[in-house]
Amino acid sequence: MKIIVFGASSSFNSINKALAAYTANLVPGAEVEVLDLNDFPVPMFSTDTEKEIGRPDGAKAYFAKLESADAFVISLAEHNGTYTAAYKNLFDWASRINQQMFAHKPVVYLATSPGPSGAKSVLAQATGSAPFFHAEVKASVSIPSFFDVFDIESGKPKDEATQAQLMAAAVALTA
Rank of each mutant, 00 (worst) to 15 (best):
M1S: 12
M1W: 00
K2L: 13
K2Y: 01
K2F: 03
I3V: 15
I4H: 02
S10R: 13
F12M: 12
F12A: 13
F12T: 15
N16H: 02
A21P: 01
A21Q: 11
A21H: 00
Y22H: 15
Y22P: 03
N25M: 02
P28C: 05
V32I: 10
E33T: 11
V34R: 10
V42P: 12
P43W: 05
P43M: 11
P43N: 08
P43H: 11
M44W: 06
F45A: 10
F45G: 06
T47V: 13
I53D: 01
I53Q: 15
P56E: 10
D57W: 00
G58D: 09
Y62T: 08
F63L: 07
A64S: 15
A64Q: 13
S68G: 08
A69Y: 04
A69T: 10
A69E: 05
D70S: 10
F72C: 05
I74V: 15
A77N: 11
A77V: 06
E78W: 09
E78T: 11
H79K: 10
A85C: 03
A85I: 09
A85L: 09
A85Q: 14
A86E: 13
A86W: 03
Y87G: 08
Y87K: 04
Y87N: 14
K88Q: 14
N89Q: 06
N89F: 02
F91W: 11
R96I: 08
N98L: 02
Q100D: 14
M101H: 11
P106C: 06
V107P: 08
V108R: 00
V108A: 01
Y109H: 12
L110T: 06
T112W: 00
S113I: 04
P114F: 08
P114Y: 07
P114C: 09
G115I: 11
S117Y: 12
G118K: 11
S121C: 09
V122N: 07
L123Q: 03
A124N: 10
A126P: 01
A126V: 02
A126H: 00
P131D: 03
H134F: 13
A135K: 00
E136D: 14
V137Q: 06
K138L: 09
A139Q: 05
F146S: 02
D148W: 00
D148M: 08
F150E: 01
D151I: 08
K156S: 08
K156A: 12
K156Y: 05
K158W: 03
K158L: 15
A161V: 14
T162Y: 04
Q163L: 13
A164D: 13
M167H: 12
A170I: 00
A172S: 14
A175F: 01
A175H: 12
